[in-house]
Write a protein that binds this DNA or RNA. Structure first.
Lengths: 178, 178
DNA sequence: TATATTTTTCAGAATGTTCTGAAATTGTGG
DNA sequence: CCACAATTTCAGAACATTCTGAAAAATATA
């Protein structure tokens, strides 16, 4: 495998993208496939992925499907060719938007629901019995709920402001950070 | 284990916090200990953690140390007691700040360094040979770098604006999101 | 310093995740 | 409908992570 030049750069990026994803609870292979497709000027088929990353057909298939589920890649059919080709979203901004939308849905949503349920349960507790503890817990639950609101606000900024491009957003945020 | 009332709410929260952390690449037990300490009005010692979460002394010790490393909990000594007690940061905002500061350091930093190295390597590639590909890759590398700048901007907003409280920040962001 | 208590460490066990490869399924053109 | 090419599925293997429990190290007390 090339370790220098443009192919070296590609391999370095693919590997790092995979490592980073692993710390985010996303499988290394899924992220490596994504990085490969993101860089590739042309769509790749399953066999291309198998060859370049040296993974099995099963793994390639499963991970490609997951990337489709995330909405990070798309299928492409070609006349006179039975194979399916895959192409990644090339707009880094749209890609990021997709990722945080999915993470909001998969992670922020459930914790918010749980917290609301926790506040409810705290209210069901009979008065006087361990009242101080009930109050303390309730306060902490709603503090985290407020935090979730803030995160939702960040997500909304990212989604809405992104249309105007990455650079303007970065600037606007820098001003806010004074 | 209580499934209703205030203790039920506590257990529900602790479990959910652990599950959520797992999808973030943080060990379930570490997050459960953190949730337990976050809710607890008083500091807890290693044995409290072992009893309440039914984990071994080794696991409790290792995970408590990791939480100390993250800066999410603090030690507390008590006169006439040899045990160490642990207390979590109770300010949800400071807690969040700590988490994203750590994640920036551990994750954003390395990918930025790698991307810069990738751009360098692309420039080392001899001209004319696969020039179109070199240009395409370089474009994608710098697109992701721009994205990292945007994320850094978000982090800065969060760090700086947080001092003024959570609610004002949420409001300011909502305005930006129009 | 000797002793008692608590914390840390770490080899091996238990658990959880991802991959492989072959079989089953799906879809296509003749 | 058949033969073929491609994709999906899934049981078991390989790998990675986390936990346990006991021994070693650290720390405090007298």
């Amino acid at each position: 495998m090339a370790e220098s030049g443009i192919e070296g750069a590609k391999n370095l990026f693919v590997r790092r993208w995979g490592e980073m994803a692993a710390t985010w609870g996303i499988s290394r292979t899924m992220a490596e496939i994504h990085a490969l497709l993101y860089l590739s000027p042309d769509p790749l088929c399953t066999d291309d992925v198998m060859d370049q990353l040296e993974v099995s057909r099963g793994s390639a298939s499963t991970n490609l499907r997951q990337l489709l589920n995330w909405g990070l890649i798309q299928r492409e059919h070609r006349r006179g060719d039975r194979k399916e080709y895959f192409e990644a979203e090339k707009d880094a901004w749209l890609m990021f938007e997709t990722i945080i939308r999915e993470r909001r849905r998969r992670e922020l949503q459930p914790i918010v629901e749980t917290l609301e349920r926790c506040v409810e349960m705290a209210h069901e507790e009979p008065r006087s019995k361990a009242d101080a503890v009930t109050k303390a817990y309730t306060k902490r639950f709603s503090d985290i709920l407020d935090l979730c609101d803030a995160m939702n606000a960040v997500f909304n900024v990212v989604n809405k402001a992104g249309r105007r491009g990455l650079k303007p957003l970065t600037k606007a945020l820098s001003l806010l950070a004074r």
